[in-house]
Simulated scan of single mutants.
Amino acid sequence: MQPSRKLDASIAGFVALSLPLMVLFAGDPLFVGLWYYLVVSASALGLAAALRTKPLFLCGTSLAVATTFVAYMLVNWRAAHPEGLLVLGHMSSLPGAVIGLILGVIAARRTQHPATVLMLALMSILGGFFINQVVVCNTLIWCGPLSMDIG
């Protein structure tokens, strides 16, 4: 059975809205406001939908965006002294995620397996985000514990 784009969009929307709901109930550990979670998720899903992706790509996109948010949220939730501007590292790493999304769309067009499409979306977006984060957080800005001591 091949999953439909409608089911994919429904699951992706559910995953995308779960994070803002968590922020509403548990508080905003990134100190950025609810709008940021909604805009980033909607932009990623909108770009993926505009590129006419295969079923389950939207779900992978939504999971990847949620993973980036949760990683940053956990840093501040577990910190003795939360970083007030930690979200700047997240914002600065989003261009890498967009590049990863576009590369993932190109790669996903060559496969027929829905699980592979989901994994391509997830891994390409997270890979692009991570590569951009490593560069930005170690050269331009301090991202708290997410910055690595390379030198």
Rank of each mutant, 00 (worst) to 15 (best):
G128A: 11
S62K: 02
G128P: 08
T139I: 12
H90T: 03
L146W: 05
R78N: 14
L103E: 04
C143T: 06
H113M: 05
S18L: 15
S18P: 00
P29E: 13
D149G: 14
I150S: 06
N76M: 10
M148R: 11
D28H: 01
S18G: 07
S124W: 00
Q133F: 07
H81D: 14
G128W: 04
V136Q: 10
V32S: 15
A108F: 09
F57C: 13
G27Q: 05
V23K: 00
L34D: 07
V117I: 15
C143Q: 07
M148K: 09
A121V: 04
L63A: 06
P20H: 11
V134R: 04
N76H: 10
P55R: 13
T111N: 09
V135I: 15
M73F: 09
A50G: 11
C59G: 03
L56Q: 06
P29A: 13
V75P: 07
T53A: 15
V75I: 15
V70Y: 14
G100D: 07
L94R: 03
L19E: 02
V117C: 05
F25E: 12
S124K: 00
A71P: 00
G84F: 04
F57L: 14
A44S: 13
R109T: 03
F69T: 01
D149P: 00
G144R: 12
L140W: 13
H81L: 12
Y37E: 09
